[in-house]
Amino acid sequence: MKPKKVPGIPSQVRGGFQDTESIKRFSSSEEVDFKFDILKDRFFEINSWNNYSQGCISKFELCDNAGESVSRSPKIGDYIKILLTKINNPEIEDYHWVQIDMIDKSNPNRIMLQCRPSKLPGNEFAGKTIHFHSAASTSTFVISKGNDYIKMAIYERNQQPNKNTSFANSIKNIVSSVIGTSKIQWKSLADGLININ
């Protein structure tokens, strides 16, 4: 299987990739427009993503460029702090960090938000990438609509395990990258976000 060629999505050069898509169809364009407006609100409420995910135990938290939690729409340069498993009193090493490097609202029928694995906020020139994928990887979240549907998709490109860390974490990152743990999480998130009754 080859990665889908989607406008605005980085080219697949090396490593792994994943295409995760969920579509919901409706009987009229008016209903599509109404549901898409709801989907846009959900899409930009990153702190609430885990509430919409069906069976997803990940927790998403939007943070500013200093790493402080914020309750607003995301901006380029913001971070998303992700806890992939349910842990009581998690430590800093239990989280994964990505930084938002692109938000595209230029098409009224499509919105894109792209992230890359990152270092801890405020530590731009030192420290290590805090994610199981390397900083060359991208995750692009896309919501879109057509005449009779709304769609939520996550396109991951150039997924390589992050080896810029301790030996133990390098092994853990290789395992996580190989088994593709994020695919299940992303499918649950995509299905949940477009499940608008």
Rank of each mutant, 00 (worst) to 15 (best):
S106L: 03
P90R: 04
I87M: 08
A66K: 04
D37P: 00
D37T: 10
K145H: 04
T181W: 04
K40S: 08
Q18P: 00
I92M: 15
Q54R: 11
K119M: 05
N197W: 01
I76W: 01
R25Y: 09
Y149N: 15
D104Y: 12
R42S: 09
I150E: 07
M1P: 10
G122R: 04
R72N: 03
G55I: 05
N173P: 03
S53A: 15
A135R: 14
C63G: 10
L193W: 09
G146H: 11
K145E: 06
A190E: 13
I23E: 12
L193R: 11
N47W: 13
I92H: 04
K172G: 03
N109M: 10
P108A: 09
E124K: 12
I23D: 09
I46N: 13
E30P: 00
G180R: 06
T181I: 14
T181L: 12
L83N: 12
A135H: 11
R14Y: 08
A168Q: 07
K128R: 03
G15L: 14
S58D: 14
S53D: 10
Q12V: 08
P161A: 06
K5G: 08
F60V: 05
I38T: 05
L39W: 08
N197H: 15
K105L: 04
N173D: 10
K145A: 03
I154V: 15
P74C: 09
F141Y: 08
L39H: 12
A153K: 02
L189D: 05
P117F: 08
K81N: 15
S134Y: 10
I80A: 06
S188Y: 07
A126C: 11
I194N: 05
A126L: 12
I92P: 02
K183Y: 14
S137H: 01
E156M: 14
D94M: 06
L83C: 14
A190N: 13
E31W: 00
F26H: 00
N107T: 05
G8M: 03
N197E: 05
E124V: 11
Q99M: 12
C63Y: 07
D148F: 04
H96K: 07
S176E: 09
F44I: 04
L83H: 12
F34C: 00
L193N: 12
A168H: 09
H131G: 13
Y95C: 03
I174V: 15
I103A: 01
S182W: 06
N164E: 14
L62K: 03
E21D: 07
T129N: 11
S27L: 08
G15Y: 10
P7A: 11
R110V: 14
